[in-house]
Write a protein that binds this DNA or RNA. Sequence first.
DNA 1: GCTCCAGATCGACCGTCATCTATATACAAG
DNA 2: CTTGTATATAGATGACGGTCGATCTGGAGC
Lengths: 117, 117
Amino acid sequence: MTVDLELSPKTKRAAGERCCEPVVYPDVRREQAMRMATVARALADPVRVQLVDVLRRHAGKVCVCELVPLFDLSQPTVSHHLKVLREAGIVGSERQGLWAYYFVLPGVLGELAAWLQ
Amino acid sequence: MTVDLELSPKTKRAAGERCCEPVVYPDVRREQAMRMATVARALADPVRVQLVDVLRRHAGKVCVCELVPLFDLSQPTVSHHLKVLREAGIVGSERQGLWAYYFVLPGVLGELAAWLQ
DNA sequence: GCTCCAGATCGACCGTCATCTATATACAAG
DNA sequence: CTTGTATATAGATGACGGTCGATCTGGAGC
């Protein structure tokens, strides 16, 4: 008996068929993709994820002097990670005298979350 | 007149006070932070964000031969990006003859989205 | 003025990553 | 079995990123 098999790829191609529906990709998406990738890159390190986690859980401004001892890292390294998060727009900072306080700016993370859904 | 000013940092420290409430950080969060960072690292490149975007918008399996011409990149480079997404558990793949089809596995992205909220 | 301290920045080191070309693999067609 | 085609892998290379020690900055207290 003859079965209604799918055409083999080469036969498809020979017949001008395609392996799947053509995918259109508007250039408008590129800049959004770059924004999402920038935010994701800022979250691409466990230390920064934990920093964001602490800042969000604390729901207020947290002093750097409290953040540094949470990790087995030097103070410059923690400062570097905070800078990466700040430059990505994920957190903001504020100085009061000698202390510096960091806090989460929910806008950017919200945009990434919205894209993920 | 005497104003009720905040104590200066040094005075606080001398008095045994702290610059902010101490932050407790349970170690349980570390492994979750590493998972989130791993997923974020997989999304830390605009090409991979666009790949996920296309696969999700298409809502089905998409052939690699359709994905490659969307970018100004060599076929091995696109294949590399797809491998990164696959190893992060973000997408799955399936071969049919010469063609390979990729599709989004929503679980991992959902976990990241849930953490972001 | 000088000293001390919290935090940021600098410069260097080293591992990881994105990209390419070249090659391998696996399958289909003749 | 040989040829062609769609992906995957390997190896090389240049760029980027995390980390540190050393240093700079600027505010506080004397």
